[in-house]
Simulated assay, not measured.
Amino acid sequence: MTDAPHILIVDDDAKIRQMLTRYLTDEGFQVSAAANGEAMRECLAKARIDLVLLDLVLPGEDGFQLAKDVRARPSTVRTGIIMLTGRSDMVDMVVGLEVGADDYIAKPFHLREVLARIRSVLRRTQPSLSAEPGPMVRQEAGEVIRFDGWRLDLGRRELKAPDGSDIALTTGEFELLATFARHPGRVLNRDQLMDLTRGRHWEAVDRSIDAQVARLRRKIEPDPKHPMLVKSVRGVGYVFTGHIQ
């Protein structure tokens, strides 16, 4: 059991915590549960967490803020985040992407759907936990892409800046950059990017891709408002213009 993925459930509804804990434990996962942000942080400090099931509406701090907290920790930058919510507003979905969520499940949900989403996100965020790679993770060990002084290690899932510093990327950001770097000079529309990165685990919401691109630009572009690596093609999509070495 110690080698099983560790899932943290953050929800203020005790019945939902108990239901998910029982179900996921029976499916072979390690499971911890927290009712609020303070308890979540205690769990993150004590153990390695591979994925957080995070309720959006919580007392005090909401799920958006807690997702930011997860992403701000160096030890959890690759931890998967699936947001649970009773709201179906598409704006919430896009905001969830902007703060680093990997997937989004509306309540009420089926337990089998939750299990499928968890396994899908784990394949992308923790490839070592699964023999089956996700839609984007098809790289061979040791494969590295270099462009304009940057070094993208696909096997280690690491990005180094031209000055040698490590750049922390979320799973979505990493997959997006890897997709761009593997298709230099090719204009990719939003549908193609969704297929190549997430396998359409998200609904077809164009703005979700735009949010991911904006976040990626803030990390790799000297001036995100005037990008030189990932450029917009008006009315079509995006093109990677970095020089592959």
Rank of each mutant, 00 (worst) to 15 (best):
M1D: 11
T2N: 15
A4W: 08
I9H: 04
D12R: 12
Q18A: 12
Q18C: 08
Q18D: 13
M19S: 09
R22D: 08
L24G: 09
F29L: 11
A33K: 08
G37T: 00
M40C: 15
M40P: 12
L44Q: 13
L44H: 09
A45T: 10
A45D: 15
A45W: 06
R48T: 14
R48Q: 14
E61M: 14
E61Y: 05
D62R: 14
V77F: 11
V77R: 14
T79V: 01
I82A: 10
M83H: 09
G86L: 00
D92M: 07
V95L: 06
V99R: 09
K107Y: 08
R112T: 15
V114Y: 08
R117N: 10
R119K: 15
R123D: 04
E132K: 10
G134V: 01
A141S: 15
V144R: 08
V144F: 01
I145A: 11
I145Y: 06
G149E: 10
W150F: 15
R151T: 14
P162E: 03
S165T: 14
A168K: 12
L169F: 08
T170L: 07
G172Q: 14
T179S: 11
R186F: 00
R186I: 13
N189A: 02
L193I: 02
D195P: 00
D195C: 02
R198L: 03
V205P: 06
R207S: 07
I209V: 08
R215G: 10
H226D: 11
M228T: 15
L229C: 08
G235P: 07
I244M: 09
